[in-house]
Each structure stands twice: as structure tokens, then as C-alpha cells.
Amino acid sequence: MLDDRARMEAAKKEKVEQILAEFQLQEEDLKKVMRRMQKEMDRGLRLETHEEASVKMLPTYVRSTPEGSEVGDFLSLDLGGTNFRVMLVKVGEGEEGQWSVKTKHQMYSIPEDAMTGTAEMLFDYISECISDFLDKHQMKHKKLPLGFTFSFPVRHEDIDKGILLNWTKGFKASGAEGNNVVGLLRDAIKRRGDFEMDVVAMVNDTVATMISCYYEDHQCEVGMIVGTGCNACYMEEMQNVELVEGDEGRMCVNTEWGAFGDSGELDEFLLEYDRLVDESSANPGQQLYEKLIGGKYMGELVRLVLLRLVDENLLFHGEASEQLRTRGAFETRFVSQVESDTGDRKQIYNILSTLGLRPSTTDCDIVRRACESVSTRAAHMCSAGLAGVINRMRESRSEDVMRITVGVDGSVYKLHPSFKERFHASVRRLTPSCEITFIESEEGSGRGAALVSAVACKKACMLGQ
């Protein structure tokens, strides 16, 4: 009897593995994704193909990295998701002549009506938060230079001027797309009239992360975010950046690689679950690469896999709870928690219980395998993109072996128990001629924006502006 049951459990697990095998990517698959990513990057950089390229390769006008001589107080704003952060950054000489960066910050959550109302409502709310922060720190009387981390696709015309191309991540505030974001912020500050600010720089969160990590390690020339969304930036040779005049030196390019796949480059790798996630998203047909990796989508992918296993009578005796059938019910943090389970399955059992399920031991094991399959594919897909960037940098610099540091931020990278190990191992397999160091950014977005502002202020002083 026991043997029969054991055989049935083994057969069930084997069927589960057959279904989950769809998520496995072979090294040849990853090399294919990497080569296609490089081709799209090239198209994004070139003037004649930029418009139709899915990977936009947006110039950021960040050319210099901090040298350690900029000092002063800077205000930093960070808008990239449902939370908005205001930070005071003091850049100065530390002990023994070292450079020191001290920060104080406060988080504000953005109400739904500000995210989806008008641009005026959104930026009025942001300036209200700045006003509140300055009151708390008794700094209303000071006109501070301000660095703005704005983590949406922007076409820069200068370091302090950028046109919002399109909202992502659930934002829909009308009247912002096609307009200068810094102008919208300046107008809102003017409307309030109770404080003055000098907006000197606007950067993407990947750029802010790279600059913040450069402060720790001067070989950091790539910034990457794996959180709600997924994106990367890197220092490109100016001669390859056709959208900006000049051939000397390097400029940081914001790849906006989340949109890779929007022209069909990933079609052969998309599964039924991916198509369902895409169809029910706020932007169907867009940001397809990001939807395979980002935390906004990972939990939902797992939920759809679990429903398939229920329908195949391989999980929960073929019956799903009402909660499990509800879109968004299986949160991405559950994926991390399930994979963090120590082996007694308590954590998995508790999560499934909150979803109205009474799982068996085998159910718990199957749910864990589903989570591992989805998150491992995410790590491997992400590795193909980064390997594409790094191999490109090595080739354009004609280096036999390139040493490089990548600064990384984002909740999936930082909080998932195995993502970074799987990701690092896969990147290294795909970049055999590179020695890569990964560092995690601390308060990256805010500190990085302030350091970019410090560079901009120093330049302005040198130019006598």
C-alpha cells in the first residue's frame, strides 16, 4: 500500500517536472537572447534605426563620474514606483581627507489618484512632500541643488532636461508624456511658492545606482535594477552614441532593455503563462523582457503555473481556492519566502493557508518547484541581457580580458534567497573573457542622484555659470 502511494507521488512529481521543464533555458538559448539583445542595442544607438529599435539606448548626458572633490548639501528625489523618497545628502571631506556622503531620508507613498490623475496632481503632491521634508529638517530658507531620480523612459536633451516617452509600472498621470519632466517639477514648486529649489540633474535609477557604486569602486561602469521592473545602464564610447554629437570619451546610456521583445525577438521563448500575464497587464505587448524578470510579474506567473497544475490534477487534489483564482493573489514576496523555507515546509504551508488552501507535504514541495522554475528562468533571462552589455563593452574597448564592476539594486536581487547566485553564475558562463565584480548599492537611487548633481554643480562652477 505504502509502495503504491510512494509510486503515485513519484509519478505525480515526474509529471510536474515535465510541465515545469518549459521554463528551462539551455545555454544556447541564452546565447541567442544575448546576441539578439546586442543587435537591438546597436539599432538603438544608431541614428537611422533608433526610432524602430525596441531597446532605445537613451543617452543620459552623464559623462563624468564623481571624483571626490564636490562638497555641499544636496536634496535628492526618487520616483520610480508607488513609494517616493526625499533625501538630504551631505557631501563633504571625511576623516583623513576621505570623501564622505551622509544621508537623511523619508519615504512617502503615492496615492492612487496622483498616479493615475493628471501630471499637475502628481507633481503638486511631490512638491508637497518636499515642503514637508524641508519643514522637518528646518531647511526651507536654503535654496538647495536638487537631483531627481526618475525611473521611467526619458529622452534627455541635457542633464536637466528630459522628455517622458511613456509611463510604465502602473503610472498613468495624463499630460506628462511628451513633456519635460524637470519643467513639470519646477512648475509645481513655483505653484507652491513656499520654498526654492535648483533642479540641476535628472537621472534614471540605473544611472543613480551606477554612480553610487562608483563611489565604492571606481571600476563600476554598469548599473542595473532588478526590482519591480528590470533595466540597466553602462558607459558607452561616445563615438557609438549617434544621437549625441561628439566622439570623445564616454557617456552613460540608459538601455531601457525592459522593452526588448516588443518587436518579436522573444516570441519563441514566451510561454502561455507569459501571454496571460501580458494580456492582463496595463501595457499589453510592451516591456516583454521586463515581464519575464521583474517583481511586478513574478508572483503572478507562479500563480498561473499553480492553476495549470491544479487543472492537471497534480496539486491540491485538483481544487483551487477562490483566493488562488484571484489575479495578483500570489505576491512576489511569497516566491522569495517559499524558496527561503528551511525544509520543514512550515513557511510554505503558512503562505498557502493564507490563500485558503490546506496543502499536503507533496503540495508544498511542488509549489516550491514552481517558484524555483519561474525565478530561475528570470535570473537566466536577466543574465543574457547583462552578458550582452558586458561583452559589447569588452569588444568596443578591444580588451582581451576586461575587469568590470556592476552596481545592482532592486528588491528581487536583494531579497530573493537564490536569485543573485543563479544570476551571477549564468552571467559568468556567458562572459568567459571578463572578470566581473557585483556590488549592491546602498540607498543607491538617492545618493547617486545627489552625486550626479554634485558633478553638475562642479561643472557649472568651472564653466562660470
Score class of each variant (00 low, 15 high):
L451A: 11
Q239T: 12
D344G: 08
R377Q: 00
D78Q: 12
K420N: 10
L304M: 12
I436C: 13
G299Q: 01
F330S: 00
G448P: 06
Q465T: 05
D247L: 08
D400L: 08
T437G: 07
K190D: 06
E157L: 11
A232Q: 00
R447F: 13
L184S: 08
K39Y: 15
N231Q: 10
T332G: 15
L243S: 07
V338I: 07
T103S: 07
R327D: 15
R392T: 12
L301N: 01
E242Q: 04
K13W: 12
K169P: 13
P111C: 05
Q38P: 01
V367W: 01
D274M: 00
H416I: 06
G80K: 15
R325A: 14
T116W: 05
D3G: 12
G246E: 02
R392E: 01
L164G: 15
S336Y: 14
D187P: 00
G170R: 07
G388N: 03
K136F: 08
S445E: 15
G261M: 09
M37E: 01
D341K: 10
G178M: 10
E322T: 10
L463C: 12
E177D: 14
D29S: 11
D29W: 02
C364G: 06
Y297T: 07
E22V: 10
L144S: 03
S100G: 14
S280Y: 15
M251N: 03
L165V: 12
R192S: 04
L307W: 06
N179V: 14
K12T: 11
M121F: 09
C213G: 06
Q38M: 11
R333A: 05
M402P: 09
A454E: 14
T60P: 03
H424Y: 10
P111T: 15
R36I: 07
H218G: 03
S433P: 10
E93W: 09
L164W: 12
G227V: 02
A53V: 04
V302T: 07
Q18I: 15
F123V: 10
E245R: 10
L352D: 00
M87F: 07
E48V: 08
L185H: 11
Q286D: 06
V200E: 06
V33Q: 02
L30C: 13
G193P: 07
A460L: 10
R403E: 10
L288K: 09
A379N: 03
D4H: 01
C129M: 04
G162E: 14
E27F: 02
L324E: 00
S131Q: 03
N283E: 09
T354N: 13
N231W: 02
R43C: 14
V199A: 13
L20D: 01
Y289I: 02
S109L: 11
E322I: 07
M8C: 09
K420F: 01
E372L: 07
R397E: 06
F148H: 07
K31M: 15
S131L: 10
M393W: 03
G328W: 11
Q38E: 03
T118Q: 15
I159S: 15
Y125I: 09
D78Y: 06
A384E: 01
Y413K: 01
K39Q: 11
A370E: 00
F195W: 14
A201Q: 06
L75T: 02
L276K: 05
F171K: 09
D205L: 04
N283K: 13
E268A: 11
Y413W: 08
A232N: 00
V222K: 01
E51F: 07
T255R: 00
E48I: 14
P59A: 08
E300D: 08
D4A: 04
C457I: 12
M235L: 08
R192V: 12
D311Q: 06
M251D: 01
K190N: 12
R447W: 12
A11Y: 13
Y297E: 12
E51M: 10
V455R: 07
L185K: 05
M238P: 01
Y215Q: 01
V427A: 12
M462D: 15
D278H: 05
S54R: 05
L276Q: 06
K31R: 11
G388Y: 01
R275L: 09
K104N: 07
H50Y: 13
P66G: 09
A384M: 04
L306H: 02
G343M: 10
K420I: 02
V408G: 09
T209P: 02
V401R: 06
D3H: 04
L184A: 12
Q38S: 02
C129W: 06
L146A: 08
A114R: 12
N254Y: 08
W167I: 13
Q239S: 06
S174R: 14
T168N: 12
K169H: 12
F334W: 14
D4E: 04
G261N: 00
E17Q: 14
F84I: 09
K190L: 10
D278V: 04
F23N: 00
Y215V: 11
C230I: 07
N83M: 12
L309M: 13
K56M: 06
Q239D: 10
P153Y: 07
S281F: 03
I211A: 05
E51S: 05
Y214W: 13
R192K: 11
E22H: 13
S411R: 15
P359H: 00
V101Q: 07
V305L: 11
S263H: 14
V408A: 11
F171I: 15
K346C: 08
R303F: 01
N350L: 04
L357E: 09
L122V: 15
K104Q: 13
H424N: 02
A379Y: 01
E236Y: 01
L79E: 06
K32F: 07
P417Y: 10
K142M: 13
E290M: 05
R250I: 04
I351Y: 02
T255Q: 08
Y349R: 06
S151Q: 14
S375T: 12
L301A: 07
L301M: 14
M202F: 11
Q18L: 07
E339I: 05
N180H: 08
F150Y: 12
E372K: 10
F84W: 03
R333F: 05
K291M: 06
G72F: 03
K102D: 09
F423P: 00
I110V: 09
N240K: 06
L292Q: 06
D247R: 09
E312R: 13
T209M: 07
W99I: 10
A259T: 13
L314K: 06
E95A: 09
T116S: 09
L304T: 08
S64R: 06
M8W: 13
E70F: 06
S174K: 07
P359I: 15
L30T: 13
S340C: 09
V71H: 03
E322D: 10
V277L: 15
D217P: 06
E265M: 02
M238C: 05
L122T: 03
L314V: 14
G246D: 04
D400M: 09
K31V: 06
V244L: 08
I126D: 00
R155A: 07
R85E: 12
G162S: 11
E265L: 07
K346I: 03
L271D: 00
S426I: 06
L144N: 00
G464M: 06
S418A: 10
V367F: 01
P359L: 01
C382M: 08
F438L: 05
T326P: 08
D205G: 01
S127G: 09
F195Q: 08
E67I: 09
